[in-house]
Amino acid sequence: MIAILIVFVLGIMLLFNFYTRLLSKISQNGIRRKLEKGKISDQQLEKLCNAVDKGRKRKMMAIFMYGIFYKSFLNMQEDIYQLYRAEMEKRGMLNQ
């Protein structure tokens, strides 16, 4: 009986992990499309990049939001930060 419960809990955890990965990819693709279409101004880009930079350093928030999958949240924040950072470099905003 306990073995079935453990398998069930592990299955739920695996599903949640897949869900967070899918959510991350959808979010990144949406951001990437907005950046490619130029829908984000320089001021917005700078604010978003700063906000994500702060969020990627907050491990306690990640633990509260995602529990044992906090590293998934941190990886998602890091990937989004890299997208914004690359766009800032492309626009020449980092040299200012």
Results as ranks from 00 to 15, higher is better:
residue 65 M to Q: 01
residue 84 Y to W: 08
residue 38 G to R: 03
residue 57 K to N: 07
residue 17 N to A: 10
residue 69 F to K: 04
residue 62 A to L: 00
residue 78 E to V: 01
residue 89 E to Q: 11
residue 24 S to H: 07
residue 2 I to G: 11
residue 38 G to L: 02
residue 82 Q to R: 14
residue 36 E to Q: 11
residue 81 Y to F: 15
residue 40 I to Q: 07
residue 40 I to S: 04
residue 55 G to V: 00
residue 80 I to E: 13
residue 34 K to W: 01
residue 14 L to M: 09
residue 24 S to C: 13
residue 30 G to A: 06
residue 32 R to Q: 10
residue 91 R to D: 03
residue 33 R to L: 14
residue 59 K to F: 02
residue 74 L to T: 02
residue 61 M to R: 07
residue 87 E to R: 05
residue 37 K to V: 06
residue 21 R to A: 05
residue 27 S to R: 13
residue 55 G to I: 00
residue 92 G to A: 02
residue 5 L to G: 07
residue 78 E to T: 09
residue 70 Y to F: 11
residue 78 E to F: 03
residue 64 F to M: 04
residue 92 G to V: 02
residue 49 C to S: 13
residue 56 R to C: 02
residue 39 K to W: 07
residue 43 Q to C: 11
residue 28 Q to F: 09
residue 47 K to E: 12
residue 47 K to H: 11
residue 47 K to G: 03
residue 22 L to I: 14
residue 40 I to V: 15
residue 60 M to Q: 03
residue 17 N to T: 10
residue 56 R to I: 00
residue 11 G to E: 07
residue 9 V to I: 15
residue 77 Q to H: 02
residue 70 Y to C: 01
residue 19 Y to K: 09
residue 10 L to E: 13
residue 24 S to L: 07
residue 21 R to T: 04
residue 59 K to W: 00
residue 59 K to D: 00
residue 35 L to S: 06
residue 79 D to C: 03
residue 39 K to P: 02
residue 49 C to E: 11
residue 8 F to P: 07
residue 40 I to E: 06
residue 48 L to A: 08
residue 53 D to K: 09
residue 9 V to F: 15
residue 53 D to P: 00
residue 9 V to G: 08
residue 75 N to F: 06
residue 89 E to A: 12
residue 47 K to T: 06
residue 3 A to D: 14
residue 31 I to L: 15
residue 28 Q to C: 12
residue 83 L to Y: 13
residue 96 Q to N: 10
residue 23 L to A: 12
residue 13 M to Y: 13
residue 40 I to C: 05
residue 34 K to S: 14
residue 25 K to N: 08
residue 61 M to K: 06
residue 4 I to Q: 12
residue 71 K to C: 02
residue 84 Y to R: 05
residue 5 L to V: 14
residue 72 S to V: 04
residue 50 N to V: 03
residue 53 D to F: 10
residue 4 I to E: 13
residue 10 L to K: 13
residue 10 L to C: 09
residue 49 C to D: 03
residue 11 G to W: 07
residue 52 V to D: 00
residue 51 A to L: 12
residue 83 L to Q: 14
residue 4 I to R: 13
residue 82 Q to A: 10
residue 30 G to E: 09
residue 4 I to G: 10
residue 12 I to Q: 08
residue 32 R to M: 09
residue 30 G to I: 00
residue 40 I to D: 05
residue 37 K to M: 12
residue 48 L to V: 01
residue 65 M to A: 03
residue 42 D to G: 01
residue 73 F to W: 04
residue 5 L to S: 10
residue 55 G to M: 12
residue 32 R to E: 15
residue 21 R to I: 07
residue 27 S to N: 13
residue 54 K to M: 11
residue 93 M to C: 05
residue 2 I to P: 08
residue 53 D to V: 00
residue 5 L to C: 14
residue 28 Q to I: 14
residue 67 G to V: 01
residue 35 L to A: 03
residue 53 D to E: 15
residue 34 K to C: 04
residue 62 A to D: 01
residue 32 R to K: 15
residue 93 M to S: 04
residue 92 G to M: 01
residue 16 F to W: 12
residue 88 M to G: 06
residue 4 I to W: 11
residue 72 S to D: 13
residue 26 I to F: 05
residue 3 A to N: 12
residue 1 M to F: 14
residue 12 I to H: 09
residue 85 R to I: 10
residue 88 M to H: 08
